[in-house]
């Protein structure tokens, strides 16, 4: 029986020890930088594998008009608490100008009428919130790729950054910002949408202009877009992770999952 009692003691100690160690270690694990680096490295693997599987032109699924959600839940900012924005909105965004700058040969300044006159697309797509829910809507807007071509990206440009009007975090004083890579920027479904379900984009959904980058999650679909910049690196922008949520809470920059 001696073998058994040794086993029993060993198991008991191992179990109790493992339990206690796990609990106390978890906090340190979660805070530890090397652990964080290892756990966060999954994003790079996911991005590379999805880029490998997804051809650049592969479309996100599109839906029928009957699939459009009767209630499309607005999330994040649902308005802009800013006098300049309120003045623009009061004028029906007649005076609104989208600035396209950064690493471009010819900076652009485009009104909504200018955007309507560019190459546009209408698509019924699904919006997947990072929280888990989805809503379907019809979007109409100017294709981003041709706009960038018109501006002429400099060879150093690697990312497109979207600067927004909404003060998402008054405590930090941060206005919303997001960024995407060039493959998504030139994707045939990537729009600067000014219409939702055949109506001018509602305030809660980002009037006058929101990004649609259909193969990624909702927080990438920047609302209240005022300015676009082509950049070589995301590092100088606030936390350096390329987006408000990426910098503030640790959401993945690549939101294809």
């Amino acid at each position: 029986m001696s073998g058994f009692s040794i086993n029993r003691r060993w198991f008991g100690r191992a179990l109790a020890g493992a339990g206690a160690a796990a609990l106390s270690a978890c906090d340190r694990l979660n805070q530890s930088k090397p652990v964080k680096r290892v756990v966060y490295s999954a994003e790079g693997l996911t991005r590379r594998v999805q880029r490998l599987i997804l051809s650049p032109g592969q479309l996100a699924p599109e839906y029928q008009p009957s699939d459009i959600s009767p209630l499309f839940r607005p999330n994040g900012s649902i308005g802009v608490d800013d006098d300049g924005y309120r003045a623009l909105a009061a004028g029906g965004f007649e005076d609104f100008k989208l600035e396209v700058g950064g690493l471009v040969e010819r900076p652009l300044s485009l009104s909504l009428a200018d955007l309507r006159a560019r190459q546009t697309r209408t698509q019924i797509t699904r919006h997947d919130c990072v929280e888990g829910w989805s809503c379907i809507a019809k979007w109409k807007g100017a294709l981003l790729g041709p706009l960038l071509q018109e501006a002429g990206l400099k060879p150093a440009a690697k990312f497109i950054v979207f600067y927004c009007a909404d003060l998402i975090d008054p405590a930090v004083g941060a206005q919303y910002y997001e960024s995407i890579g060039l493959s998504d920027a030139f994707h045939p479904q990537t729009l600067l949408a000014y219409e939702m379900n055949d109506q001018p984009l509602p305030t809660a959904h980002g009037a006058p202009l929101r990004l649609r980058v259909e193969r990624q999650l909702g927080y990438k679909q920047a609302k209240y877009v005022m300015r676009i910049a082509a950049v070589e690196s995301l590092a100088p922008i606030r936390g350096g992770k390329g987006g408000y949520w990426e910098d503030s809470t640790g959401y993945e920059w690549y939101a294809g999952i």
């Binding site: 999805q50 997804l54 996100a60 997947d128 259909e214 193969r215 999650l217 294809g256 999952i257």
Partner: peptide, 13 residues
């Protein structure tokens, strides 16, 4: 649940 995978494999949906 991955929007990227849905574009790659619409059969999943």
């Amino acid at each position: 649940m991955s929007p990227g995978m849905d574009a790659a494999f619409p059969g999943l949906l």
